[in-house]
Design a protein around this nucleic acid. Structure first.
Length: 468
RNA sequence: GGUCCCAUCGUCUAGUGGCCUAGGACGUCGGCCUCUCACGCCGAAAACGCGGGUUCGAUUCCCGCUGGGACCA
């Protein structure tokens, strides 16, 4: 088999969204699986809506997900000469023709067809005329066969048949001289030697026209694979109103890129009952055979779960690097990476996102913590003064301030005072963290260190005294 | 409206005629673990859209309907 070549061809008219990212991912995986090439092409023929920022957003999103490309980026806007050449080719072969019908004329025909409850179609007027090129405004149309049918052998949907009679004479060059989308895509895919076109099934309807263009341009037809779309919870196509649909928004929210990759790949593809895949495993196991046919609904909760799994499994060094920007964003500068890693090891089993992790690590770094109102009311009570004093005294005597020594101190104290451990732990937790929720209290105490623990306990004592 | 696609728990899916009393995962609910919260573990509720065929036997094959989606207008 010759080399597999796939491509991702986004229009730079916004951010890289979930659906686009999955299409890119499938193309990337397919190319990597077959040790082929993955090509990036920017479809920026729409000069009005295409922006530099969007192009950058595409790069950023793909980089974040780790979808590296082997060729490109190619820009359609730099390829007009090529399109023109191919249009000439079709014209000279008599497979395309100049059409001088005015928009008004076309609109009139359309309205008439509608009023007769017929399908609006181009009349084919200029096709029969075969007029030569003049200076009048004109488009170029492709001569679609009037009889027969066109078959698309789709790797996912199976064989799909279109009646040629249903197809209009497609405009391939607009009156402003620009190629139309369907034409530019075909020329690009031919000239770039794309062997496998994996794209959203919203393009399935266009495929018959494209197949006819391949034929007319004497080019081999690539394999097509139309993957089902991703829908929102209301089963409408995923869009902004469904919440975050930009891939990069999930980076901001503290998602790990591979969690996103893992989520996206399982949306429409499966490998038995397996849910979690490493990158290498995906490359090894990915196949279009097991891509489903039906549209899928984007489920943020499952993504969140996957993210928590990956955070749990990721090593603390890597997480530290990823977490620092989140901490900096809230004004915390990190000097002690070793300390940060210790904190992370306490937090990674209980954080679903890096954002959450940053939230729950704040009390470690802040000089002054504040108490949650409810927590303080419930747990910081006068009867604790005695116990807190003893605790401070005992802590200050511990030489090696480690978890085990701390735990023993607590156990002794609970026997001494005849109170349950829980009755001790919660007030201490509130004193040290400001909240009722934190990692294990012994770990927290060890990581905070003797000095800060004693400081915070003293502050709590002051707070309790002030209250009475 | 025309064309095309699709149809298993709420969601992602396994299932390719008998292994199905329909499996797994997320979520939900209950329990265990426990210094809180998580993690983890155990358990529960939860689906083959409907109607016809084909077949000894259909979730699985065929047809229709219904429903959803996409594209074009």
């Amino acid at each position: 088999m010759s080399e597999i070549r796939t491509r991702f061809a986004p229009s730079p008219t916004g951010y890289l969204h979930i659906g686009g990212a999955r299409t890119a991912l499938f193309n990337w995986l397919f190319a990597r699986h077959y040790k082929g090439k993955f090509i990036l092409r920017i479809e920026d023929t729409d000069r009005v809506r295409s922006t530099k920022e969007s192009i950058q957003a595409i790069y950023d999103g793909m980089e974040w997900l780790g979808l590296n490309w082997d060729e490109g980026p190619y820009f359609q806007s730099e390829r007009f000469d090529i399109y023109r050449e191919y249009i000439e080719k079709l014209l000279s072969k008599g497979e395309a023709y100049y059409c001088y019908c005015t928009p008004e004329e076309l609109e009139k025909n359309r309205k008439q067809a509608m009023s007769e409850r017929k399908k609006p179609k181009y009349s084919g007027k200029c096709r029969e005329l075969d007029r030569p090129k003049t200076d009048e405004p004109h488009v170029v149309r492709f001569k679609t066969p009037k009889q027969g049918c066109t078959k698309v052998a789709d790797l996912i949907k199976g064989e799909v048949i279109f009646e040629n009679a249903e197809l209009d004479d497609l405009i391939i060059q607009r009156s402003d001289g620009y190629p139309t989308y369907n034409f530019a895509v075909v020329v690009d895919d031919i000239t770039m030697g794309i062997t496998d076109i994996i794209r959203g099934d919203d393009h399935l309807n266009n495929t018959a026209r494209q197949v006819l263009l391949y034929d007319s341009l004497d080019s081999p037809i690539p394999r097509f694979a139309h993957v089902p779309l991703i829908l929102g919870i209301d089963k409408a196509r995923l869009s902004k109103r469904h919440g975050a649909t930009s891939v990069m928004a999930y980076k901001e929210l503290g998602y790990l890129p591979h969690a996103m990759v893992n989520y996206l790949v399982r949306l429409g593809w499966s490998y038995g009952d397996q849910e979690i895949f490493s990158r290498d495993e995906l490359i090894e196991k990915f196949s279009l055979d097991s891509v489903g046919k039906s549209a899928g609904i984007f489920n943020p909760e499952k993504l969140l779960w996957l993210n928590s799994q990956y955070i749990k499994e990721e090593n603390s060094e890597t997480l530290a690097e990823l977490l620092v920007p989140f901490l900096q964003k809230r004004g915390l500068s990190i000097h002690d990476i070793e300390l940060l890693q210790k904190i992370i090891s306490l937090l990674k089993e209980r954080s679903k996102t890096l954002l959450q992790m940053a939230d729950s690590s704040e009390f470690f770094f802040k000089e002054d913590i504040s108490y949650e109102k409810k927590a303080a009311e419930k747990f910081l009570k006068p009867e604790l003064l005695d116990i807190f004093h003893i605790l401070i005294e005992r802590f200050s005597r511990i030489e090696d301030f480690n978890q085990r020594a701390i735990e023993e101190t607590f156990k002794d104290l609970s026997i001494l005072k005849g109170t349950k451990l829980a009755k001790l732990a919660q007030p201490v937790r509130v004193s040290l963290t400001g909240t009722t929720v934190s990692p294990g209290i012994y770990e927290v105490i060890e990581v905070l260190g003797k000095k800060r623990v004693i400081n915070r306990l003293n502050k709590a004592i002051e707070f309790i005294r002030d209250k009475v």
